[in-house]
Design a protein around this nucleic acid. Structure first.
Length: 195
DNA sequence: TGCCCGATTAACT
DNA sequence: GTTAATCGGGCAA
């Protein structure tokens, strides 16, 4: 049985946690898979929701690490983040893609498609497959319905520019499993390097 | 109060 | 490659 990850796992730099999450398994009510793509957001980062200080929406980011920050994207989708660093640092990791492994039938039904490669290939898609909504904002990641398990084998992690942002777009704070076919987009082979 | 725009996705041409 | 869908947050006035 893989080792469970608890909230203390997140109490360090978001740039350490983010690559360490690649290969970990995330389950919500027993449904989910291996994390293969994430992005790091730090409170000093102009692209981060926390950059301009606390508000009603981003309040969870300013709380303790190990909790879930969920926000509405483009008025349509939900996106989920894991809060990192000591309380008040307002840093978080955006979960961008999973390699589906548990509850495939459930995820296919929720997503309305059968192609396993598209079930969790993008932050909005992950939340639809795991049925994450604003109701999960502020919940602890080491308590039901959530379960996190450390990776069981070494993973080759690559980094690259984050997707869909205009500020600080040059920062290589997108991390993913090298060569995974479950990424939301491939990492440019030239601009990325193994860590 | 009004306006702009976004950590996206799917369906187009 | 391009664009519509869709709406709340954040800031200017």
């Amino acid at each position: 049985m893989p080792k469970r990850l608890f909230r203390s796992f997140f109490a360090r730099s978001v740039h350490e946690v983010a690559p360490d999450l690649i290969g970990a398994t995330l389950l919500v009510d027993g449904v989910g898979g291996r994390i293969v793509e994430v992005e790091a957001y730090h409170h000093t980062d102009p692209a981060a929701h926390s950059y301009r200080g606390p508000t009603d929406r981003n309040a969870v980011m300013f709380g303790p690490p190990g909790y879930l920050y969920v926000y509405r994207s483009y008025g349509i989708h939900w996106c989920m983040n894991f809060v990192c660093e000591p309380k008040g640092s307002a840093s978080a990791v955006l979960i961008r893609a999973l390699e589906p492994s548990e509850g495939l039938t459930t995820m296919r039904r929720r997503r309305g498609l059968s192609d396993i490669r598209l079930l969790c290939a993008g932050p909005g898609r992950v939340c639809e497959a795991l049925r994450i909504t604003a109701a999960h904002n502020g919940m602890a990641l080491d308590e039901p319905p959530f379960a996190l398990f450390a990776r069981t084998a070494p993973v080759e992690v690559t980094a690259g520019a984050r997707i869909g942002i205009t500020k600080a777009a040059d920062k290589p704070w997108r991390y993913g499993e090298k060569g995974s076919r479950f990424l939301s987009k491939p990492f440019p082979s030239k601009a990325s390097g193994a860590i």
